[in-house]
């Protein structure tokens, strides 16, 4: 028993070292070749955000909104809005073989982008509060404010789609 324990004791640091080397190696290769995946994941996050915002907006048009749906959607919007800055690591812009409308100004004006993301997060928090309070009037105003935060950020940090 003691012999086994000694063997385990000597092998454990070695195993940890190998595992750490593998993780670092994998992360390094992801950093070099993983930008299309990062962009793809970002696009999925934004689609989820849009889909969730629409789901919530559809509820506020109803005479009797489903408040559970509203609460879930508002929670998810806040969660996604808080994670949004992490979707834009440095170097994940254009020129990596995947189409993206992320403007170069995101990385050339990081403070302004951070401020725009913060604004969205604050508005998402306000929306979540209105959802928790089941206040339909406040919810209508705050979903509009959320949309304004989206649009103002797109104006500045989302590249133009048109060909002219």
């Amino acid at each position: 028993m003691s012999n086994l324990a000694t063997r385990k004791g000597t092998f454990r640091p070695l195993m940890l070292l190998i595992a750490a080397a593998l993780v670092i190696g994998a992360a390094g290769s992801a950093g070099a070749a993983g930008i299309p995946q990062i962009v793809h994941a970002r696009q999925i996050h934004f689609k989820t955000l849009g889909k969730t915002a629409k789901s919530l907006r559809d509820q506020i048009w109803r005479s009797h909104p489903n408040w559970n749906v509203v609460a879930n959607d508002a929670n998810q919007i806040e969660r996604l809005a808080s994670a949004l800055p992490s979707w834009f690591p440095a170097g994940s812009g254009k020129g990596h073989g995947i189409r993206t409308r992320a403007s170069a100004t995101i990385w050339s004006q990081p403070q302004q982008f951070a401020r725009a993301a913060r604004r969205l997060f604050n508005r998402a928090k306000d929306l979540n509060q209105a959802a928790a309070g089941r206040n339909l009037r406040a919810l209508r105003l705050r979903i509009r404010a959320l949309g304004q935060a989206c649009a103002s950020c797109h104006r500045r940090f989302r590249a133009h789609s048109s060909w002219w």
């Binding site: 689609k47 849009g50 889909k51 915002a53 629409k54 048009w61 949309g147």
Partner: peptide
């Protein structure tokens, strides 16, 4: 339906996000 899901036409509530 716009990308953000908020700015939409008045009849967008009758269609899904993908259809919009």
């Amino acid at each position: 339906v716009d990308v953000d899901g908020v700015a939409s036409g008045p009849f967008a509530r009758w269609v899904s996000f993908a259809t919009g």
